[in-house]
């Protein structure tokens, strides 16, 4: 998808956006200064991190563990703060986990 229509002729009639959820094309990951890192050995697979993420970017993997899509994670720290057994820690962006 183009960021902006090239000309006014490409502006959808009435400014309607026909493609549901195409905001995914906008990556909010670069807003982040802290990054959540999961320690699956502590994880009890409760899904609390999933339910509380305002971005909806924490999803369950095939192994039942949860992980954030770092293209969108804004680094708010909610998941780490709410995780019951402290399986998630927030680390500086750029640092190794």
């Amino acid at each position: 998808m183009k960021k902006w229509p090239e000309t006014w002729k490409e502006y959808n009639t009435g400014g309607i956006v026909f493609e549901p959820g195409n905001a995914r094309s906008f990556k909010t990951g670069p807003w982040r200064s802290l990054r959540p890192v999961w320690d699956n050995s502590k994880c009890i697979k409760c899904g609390v991190c999933y339910i509380f993420c305002p971005e909806g970017c924490v999803q369950e993997g095939p192994d039942g563990f949860f992980a954030a899509d770092l293209d969108y994670c804004k680094g708010c720290g909610i998941c780490a703060h709410e995780c019951w057994p402290s399986a998630i820690s927030m680390i500086e962006e750029g640092q190794e986990s």
């Binding site: 229509p5 000309t7 006014w8 490409e10 502006y11 009435g14 400014g15 309607i16 549901p20």
Partner: peptide
Amino acid sequence: PLSMGTLGLPEIYTEA
């Protein structure tokens, strides 16, 4: 599903 009444930033308002 579609979205009606979207926001027009300065980059698009003139074209609208």
